[in-house]
C-alpha cells in the first residue's frame, strides 16, 4: 500500500497479498480477516459512543427484508439496477429432475427458481419504516434509531470500496422537518470531526444517488438542487474521485408519505439518516495507515482502541 499510488486494482491486490481480504471468485464479495473485522468492530463502537447521548433505539436487521416492503418503498422506481431478489426452487420431483438435467447440460437452470418473499436489503433503514408505522403515531419529540445491516447492491467492481455485500450502520431520525434537519446538521459536524480524529483526509460535498436512466438524471438534479444529500469523501482508490464513506440524507416526507408515518395530529413525518459505510471506513484506514493495524499511528490507535 504505497502512499503514492491510488488505484482500485493495486489496492485490491495489496489487500489480498496482505491477507486483509480474501478472494471469493466474485468481484465485490470478499472474506474479511480478523484484523479487518476488529477495525470495523472498533469503529462501530466509536460511532455508538458518539451517538450515545441521543439515546437511539438500536435495531440490527438481517441482510434480507420483505420484498413487498422494498416494492412499496419505491426502490424499483429509482434503483432497479442495484436491487436483488432471492429466488428459490419450489417445484416437485419432476421439476427437480429437469433442473438437474439442465445443470448437467451446462445450460441455464435458474428459470426453474421462483421469486421468494425475500429481497436483499439495499440500505439499513429500508426495513425500519413499516415497522415504525405499524406502532401508531410518532411522538412529538420524534424518534431516533441506530441501525445496522449487511446490504446488497448489484454493482460488481474491482474497486474494493464498491462491494456487492457490505455493512452499513445508520442513525435515522423521524420527526418534523426542523427536527430531522437539525439531526442531520449535528451529524455533518460530528461525522467530520470523527474521521479527522482518525487522521484521514476528508471533505464533505453535495451529492446525489445513482438514480437509474435519464429520468434518474432529473431525480439526481432535483436532489442536488434541494441539497438533500451530502457525502463525506475520503481518497481510497483515487484522489480525483474520493470514496463516499459517510452519507447524510434528508428524505423530506418521502418515507412519511409512503408509510403513513404521522404525528398524533395527523401531520406527516419527515426523516433523515446518516449512514456509515463500515467496509469503506476500514479500507480508508488500511489505505492511509498501512496493512498492519498494530503499527498505525498511536493517536489513531488511541481513538479506536480506547472505546
Amino acid at each position: 500500500m504505497d502512499a503514492k499510488t491510488f488505484d482500485s486494482k493495486s489496492l485490491l491486490d495489496s489487500l489480498f497479498e496482505n491477507g486483509i481480504l480474501f478472494e471469493s471468485g466474485i468481484d465485490g464479495l470478499y472474506g474479511r480477516s480478523g484484523a479487518f473485522e476488529e477495525v470495523i468492530e472498533r469503529f462501530e463502537r466509536l460511532v455508538t459512543r458518539l451517538g450515545a447521548p441521543d439515546k437511539a433505539t438500536r435495531i440490527h436487521f438481517p441482510p434480507g427484508m420483505s420484498r413487498a416492503t422494498l416494492e412499496k418503498s419505491g426502490y424499483m422506481k429509482s434503483f432497479p439496477q442495484l436491487a436483488g431478489c432471492v429466488h428459490s426452487f419450489m417445484g416437485g420431483e419432476r421439476e427437480h429432475a429437469q433442473l438437474l438435467g439442465m445443470m448437467a447440460d451446462g445450460g441455464g437452470w435458474t428459470e426453474l427458481q421462483k421469486a421468494t418473499d425475500v429481497a436483499l436489503t439495499p440500505a439499513a433503514c429500508y426495513p425500519l419504516y413499516p415497522t415504525i408505522a405499524a406502532r401508531g403515531p410518532v411522538p412529538a419529540q420524534g424518534l431516533l434509531f441506530e441501525l445496522s445491516s449487511y446490504c446488497f447492491r448489484h454493482e460488481p467492481s474491482k474497486d474494493p470500496a464498491r462491494m456487492q455485500l457490505f455493512r452499513m450502520r445508520e442513525f435515522v431520525k423521524i420527526g418534523t422537518a426542523e427536527q430531522v434537519r437539525s439531526f442531520r446538521e449535528s451529524w455533518l459536524k460530528r461525522g467530520k470531526a470523527m474521521i479527522e480524529q482518525l487522521d484521514l483526509p476528508c471533505e464533505v460535498d453535495l451529492a446525489n444517488d445513482p438514480f437509474f436512466g435519464r429520468g434518474g438524471k432529473m431525480m439526481a438534479n432535483n436532489q442536488r438542487d434541494q441539497g438533500l444529500k451530502f457525502e463525506l469523501l475520503i481518497p481510497v482508490t483515487s484522489i480525483e474521485k474520493p470514496t463516499a464513506c459517510l452519507s447524510f440524507n434528508y428524505h423530506q416526507d418521502h418515507f412519511g408519505r409512503t408509510w403513513g408515518l404521522k404525528f398524533a395530529d395527523g401531520e406527516l413525518c419527515h426523516s433523515a439518516c446518516v449512514g456509515f459505510g463500515l467496509e469503506r471506513v476500514a479500507l480508508a484506514l488500511f489505505r492511509h495507515h498501512g496493512p498492519d493495524a498494530d503499527a498505525w499511528p498511536a493517536a489513531v490507535r488511541d481513538v479506536l482502541w480506547s472505546v
Binding site: 419505491g74 422506481k77 435519464r214 429520468g215 434518474g216 432529473m218 431525480m219 432535483n222 436532489q223 418521502h254
Partner: peptide, 11 residues
C-alpha cells in the same frame, strides 16, 4: 408534484 411524478411527466 413529486420527483417520481416529474419523471413520469418528462416521459
Amino acid at each position: 408534484l413529486t420527483s417520481f411524478a416529474s419523471v413520469q411527466m418528462m416521459l
